[in-house]
Write a protein that binds this DNA or RNA. Sequence first.
DNA 1: CACATCACG
DNA 2: ACGTACGTGATGTGT
Length: 403
Amino acid sequence: MPTAEVLSTIEQNGVRIDVAGLEKISEEFEERLKALSDRIYEAAEETFNINSIIELQSILYDKLEIHKQCKVKPKKIKLGNKMSTDEETLEKMQAHPLPELILQYRELNKLKNTYVDQLPAFVNPDSNRIHSSFRQTVAATGRLASDNPNLQNIPIRTEEGRRIRHVFIPSNDNHVLVSADYSQIELRVVAHFSKDPTFMAAYRQNLDIHALTAATIFEVPEDGVTREMRAKAKEVNFGLIYRMGPERLSLITHTSKTEAKGFIERYFQKYATIHTLQEHFLKQARKQGYAQTLMGRRRYLPAINGRGLHRRMAEGAAVNTPIQGTAAEIIKLAMSAIQKRLQRERLKTKMILSVHDELVFDTPHHEEEIIVSLVKQEMEQVITLEVPLVVDVGVGANWLEAH
DNA sequence: CACATCACG
DNA sequence: ACGTACGTGATGTGT
């Protein structure tokens, strides 16, 4: 039973959503899903449970044999010792209309079942807001984790997904949402640890590493980089820093394994000190038995001196943890500093969400200006690294606009 | 409860 | 030759 004090805190924090807006989206998605199902049954020449991987496998691989027309060698999965039906696999199976229809169905179905239809049930009737839990002792790297509901994985990457961000709104008409996010914080942490000359030079001029990588991968000029190209390049940058292999890289970039291999070689030639940094983290972890962040958090890795797959995974964690964990420490320090100032300066603004490199505030109109500069200043100055930290702040009538 | 899939950083 | 970015949580299927 929560105490009165806890309840009053609950009533002041949390995030409001536009339930009526979600209901409209739900109805629209319902109709579109129905239409998609009909087209799927037509393409499959039978009706079946679209959510059943086993039924879908037998249609794709046994009945229609689509993989044989596409030079696709889909990865095997345990279920029935058959092949995968995940997005990366279906994307390549363009010899038949069915896989693309399944992907469209999955996107809408995921959004509807996980977000559109579930979020309203989390609205507390007393506060009229959603109160997620933020857990401090779950993630091995020191990140926060959010559940009931998870507000750290609200969609943003697709057009339809962004409509869900749109329904996250301020607590009342006199408030706005303020969103402040660290620009590429993990790569800046990498720059700090590695002192890589290219990374340092880029961040001291406030350039966009992901866009630079995108221009390289897709062989376009820097001003020809699209949103999608940059998103892919972001995956590649993180993937390679955290030791992705040519197999996976070729899947992501839709190139051959040989091309991917060549790209990885060129990447680490260009950013030689990144490779040195990886070796440094591995050596440290092997010697000490744990990975360590900038501020001293340890993650013990008993498998680091073992063999096989377990060792390989421990090595991934040994490289990832100091970077992801340090970024987590930086934003947690910033949260603490900001909360102190909100209280000391008797501001009405509430810090309502923390999403790994972003903080969201529910702010009265008249505090808008002070909060924008207060938050930016505290987040950027909370620690001094070898490269500057940059925070982008936005204000809006919903979470999407604040971004 | 394990697995596959997919939402986010 | 093996396995091959990391960190989470929610959902539906199937045992």
